[in-house]
Design a protein around this nucleic acid. Sequence first.
DNA 1: TCTGGGGTCCTAGGACCC
DNA 2: TCTGGGGTCCTAGGACCC
Length: 363
Amino acid sequence: MNKTMRIVAHLDMDAFFAAIEERDNPRFKGLPIVVGADPKSGAGRGVVSTANYKAREYGIHSAMPISTAWRLSEEARRKGGPAAVFMGVGMRRYGEVSGRVMAILRIHVPIVEEASVDEAYLDVSFTGSYEKAEALAKKIKQSISDKERLTASVGIGPNKLIAKIASGRHKPDGLTVVRGDEAEAFLAPLPIREIPGIGPKTEELFLKLGVRLVQDLKKYSKDEMREMLGKWGADLYEKVRGRDASPLVEEWEAKSIGEQETFEQDTKDLHFVTERLQALARTVVKRLGAGGFKTFRTVVLTVRFSDFETKTRSRTLETPTDSYETLEFETMKLLLPFFDKRENPRKKLIRLIGVRVEKLSKQ
DNA sequence: TCTGGGGTCCTAGGACCC
DNA sequence: TCTGGGGTCCTAGGACCC
C-alpha cells in the first residue's frame, strides 16, 4: 500500500430528523415517528420528510405522501399497534444539531465536505490504512453517540462513490469498509438504482434494456453510455467499475436562492396568489442579504397547476439589483400571463408558485 | 399513493458575435 | 450561391438529491 492511497469516509446520520425528535421528546421513545407535513387526518398535502425505523415497519418512508403515511398508521392502529406520532419539520433545531455533529467530525478529520444537513464526506487518507480509518470511524461514531445521543452509519472506501454506497449498506448504526481492490466486486451485484445519479427515469430506461444490476451495465462502451446519457454517461461508465475521482468540496457558494409554496387548496384567485408571491419575494430578498449576497440578476417564477404540470418563466435583468420592489415587479410580470388565455388557456387551477433568484453576486 | 421545499447540474435551441 | 465554425448568453425543461 502506498502512502498516497486515497481513503474516503461517508457519514450518514440515521433517520436524522426523527431521531432528534425521539431524543428530545422522551414520551415518544419507542413509538413510530413521522416528521413531515401536517397529515390533517389524512387530508394533508405534503410528504414525509423522515420516518424512524419503527414507522418504517408500517411501510412509511421518506418522500411518501403524508396522506398515505396517515392511512398506513391507521391500518396499523386497527391491528392493535400504536398510531404513529406525526410531527412538523423543525429545521432550525436540526440545523443546530447538524452544526454540532459537523464540529465533532472536524475534531477528528481536517478535510470535511458537508454534503447536506445529515451527511458528510471525510478525507481519511491521512490515517494511511483501511484498518486505521475504520478505527477512526468507530471513534467518531462513539463521540456522536456520547455527545448527541444519536447514531450514524459510516461507509469507508477508495472514493466518494464507494463510501456513499457503503454507508447505506448496514443501517442504522452501521460501519462498512470496502477496500480499493474490492470496490468493483462490491458494486457488481447491486441494483443500478443504488448508484447516486440513477433515479427512477434512468432505472426505467435501463430496465427496458434488460439492465437491472450494476454488472449488467458493463456491457456498454463509454461511447454507448455517452450516447444514451450524455456527459453523465461517461462518468457512469467509470462509476460502474468502482472508479470516481471527484474531490471533496469543502467550501461552496449558493448559485440560487428561492422559496416556493404549495397552497392548501388549488386556486385561481389572483389577489391571493399575488399576496403569496409578495411574501415569497420578501423572504427571498431577506435570505439573499442574510447569505452575504449583494445582488441578483435573474428572477425565476415557477407555477404548478393542479394537474402537476409545472412551468417556469425567467428574466435576466440588464443590471444587478438587491431590490425587493424589482423582484416583486418582475415576478408579477411573469405571473400575470398565467391568469389569462396567453399561458393558461384552459383556466387550470394553480397548486404552487415559487420565486427564485440567480446570478448572485457578493460584490 | 397523489405527489414538499430546498437546491444542483445538464441539455437544447435561438440570438448574437467574431 | 445555399452556405463555416466556435463561443457565450438566455430561456425552458427535466432528472436528480436530501
